[in-house]
Simulated scan of single mutants.
Amino acid sequence: MTDVTVWYDGSCPLCLREMALMKRLDRKKAIEFVDLTRFETPCPVDRKLMMDRFHASENGTLHSGAAAFAAMWRAVPLLRPLGLAARRSWILKLLERLYLLFLQVRPHLQKIVGGRIKS
Score class of each variant (00 low, 15 high):
residue 44 P to R: 08
residue 45 V to A: 10
residue 47 R to H: 05
residue 31 I to H: 02
residue 28 K to F: 14
residue 55 H to Q: 05
residue 45 V to Y: 08
residue 36 L to D: 07
residue 54 F to K: 06
residue 55 H to S: 11
residue 32 E to R: 14
residue 35 D to R: 01
residue 26 D to H: 10
residue 48 K to T: 12
residue 21 L to K: 01
residue 52 D to A: 06
residue 24 R to E: 01
residue 47 R to K: 07
residue 23 K to N: 05
residue 51 M to D: 02
residue 35 D to V: 10
residue 47 R to C: 04
residue 34 V to T: 03
residue 55 H to D: 06
residue 26 D to K: 12
residue 27 R to L: 14
residue 56 A to W: 01
residue 32 E to F: 09
residue 21 L to R: 05
residue 42 P to I: 02
residue 36 L to W: 03
residue 57 S to I: 06
residue 21 L to V: 01
residue 25 L to G: 09
residue 53 R to S: 01
residue 41 T to N: 08
residue 29 K to H: 15
residue 39 F to L: 13
residue 33 F to L: 12
residue 22 M to L: 15
residue 25 L to W: 08
residue 29 K to M: 07
residue 50 M to N: 01
residue 46 D to Y: 01
residue 21 L to I: 05
residue 57 S to D: 08
residue 19 M to H: 04
residue 29 K to G: 14
residue 27 R to M: 13
residue 52 D to F: 00
residue 31 I to R: 05
residue 35 D to E: 08
residue 36 L to G: 04
residue 53 R to A: 00
residue 45 V to S: 03
residue 27 R to A: 14
residue 33 F to C: 13
residue 48 K to R: 15
residue 56 A to T: 05
residue 19 M to L: 10
residue 20 A to T: 06
residue 35 D to G: 06
residue 33 F to Q: 07
residue 44 P to F: 09
residue 58 E to T: 11
residue 41 T to S: 10
residue 52 D to N: 14
residue 24 R to W: 05
residue 27 R to C: 13
residue 41 T to I: 07
residue 28 K to L: 15
residue 37 T to M: 09
residue 60 G to D: 05
residue 28 K to V: 11
residue 41 T to P: 00
residue 25 L to Q: 04
residue 21 L to H: 04
residue 48 K to N: 13
residue 46 D to F: 04
residue 47 R to A: 02
residue 23 K to C: 07
residue 60 G to Q: 09
residue 19 M to C: 10
residue 52 D to E: 15
residue 41 T to G: 00
residue 43 C to G: 04
residue 22 M to F: 11
residue 45 V to P: 00
residue 23 K to S: 09
residue 58 E to C: 09
residue 37 T to L: 12
residue 53 R to T: 08
residue 34 V to L: 10
residue 54 F to T: 03
residue 43 C to A: 11
